[in-house]
Amino acid sequence: MENKIALITGATSGIGKACALILAKMGFDIIATGRRQDRLEDLGKELAPGVRFLPLVFDVREREKVGQILGSLPSDWSAIDVLINNAGNAHGMDPIQTGSLDDWDAMMDINVKGLLYVSKAIIPGMTQRNSGMIINIGSIAGKEVYPNGNVYCGSKHAVDAITKGMRIDLNPFGIKVIAIHPGLVETEFSLVRFKGDESRAESVYKGFVPLYAQDIADIVEFVVNRPAHVVLADIVVLPTAQASATLVNKNPAK
């Protein structure tokens, strides 16, 4: 019996990489996408033995390239059972009046349009087979808006709305659509947001225990293992120290 196939975007680090590793352990063959070829090659070496691996190097914001690469998958890779739209980013924390247009474009192009480009390429196969699962990695920023989060929050609210729309439109085809909205997860996220400022990025996670990429991968494992009649449609997950997008109990009493 052939393994099922999972496609994970943004699989070169953080949540995407953790999801690829755990799905491989579950017996899925893995299609991993990302912009850094060396990171994808390293991921391939870490996967469970016996798992087929197809690394695809592209940027999800490049519409033509996404369509070309995902539209020409080898026949033995084309029947994708699980799609994890994980690729995303945050750039800057400026108030709206001084925000960077380049930062805004990057967030909307990757977080929203990139998710749509990849989904557009994969969904038709799922509807033809009347089966499949789509997991969109959102954010607590898709449920709340916080100071200086303006466009990033807008992009993640869009992910939340698009996920709900997908669930409605794909319901007749038996396709499960799930959103996972994490709070503070210690990955490269803050390093990207603060444009490589390591001290500022590290300060985000000091004084409390954040979520880790593996925590989100564990949720993905649980979601994927649910019976056919069960879908965990909308999941918000926070570290214990976090109560909302902006309220974090740092340096809690022991």
Rank of each mutant, 00 (worst) to 15 (best):
V57I: 08
V57M: 04
V57G: 05
F58H: 03
D59E: 13
D59V: 05
D59G: 02
D59H: 07
V60C: 00
R61C: 03
R63C: 07
R63Q: 10
R63K: 15
E64F: 09
K65Y: 01
K65P: 01
V66A: 01
G67R: 02
G67Y: 05
G67F: 01
Q68Y: 06
L70F: 03
G71M: 07
G71Y: 05
G71E: 03
G71P: 00
G71V: 05
S72K: 08
L73N: 01
L73K: 00
P74V: 03
S75M: 06
D76E: 13
W77R: 00
I80S: 00
I80P: 04
V82Y: 05
V82Q: 06
L83I: 06
I84Y: 02
I84A: 06
N86L: 06
N86K: 08
G88A: 10
N89M: 15
A90K: 03
A90V: 12
A90L: 11
H91Q: 14
H91E: 13
H91M: 13
G92V: 05
G92I: 00
M93N: 14
M93W: 14
D94E: 15
P95F: 08
I96R: 13
I96F: 15
I96A: 14
Q97N: 14
T98S: 14
T98F: 14
G99S: 13
G99Q: 14
S100N: 13
L101E: 13
L101T: 11
L101Q: 13
D102C: 11
D103P: 11
W104S: 12
D105H: 15
D105S: 14
D105M: 12
D105C: 11
M107S: 10
M107C: 11
M107L: 12
M107A: 10
M108L: 15
M108T: 10
D109P: 10
D109K: 12
D109F: 11
I110H: 06
I110Y: 03
N111G: 08
N111C: 09
V112Q: 03
K113D: 11
G114W: 04
G114L: 06
G114E: 04
L115E: 04
L116F: 10
L116R: 04
L116G: 06
L116S: 06
Y117N: 08
Y117F: 15
Y117K: 05
V118H: 05
V118P: 01
V118Q: 08
S119E: 05
S119L: 02
K120M: 09
K120R: 13
K120H: 12
K120I: 03
A121W: 00
A121C: 13
I122H: 06
I122E: 06
G125V: 04
M126E: 01
M126Y: 04
M126Q: 03
M126V: 06
T127E: 03
T127V: 09
T127I: 09
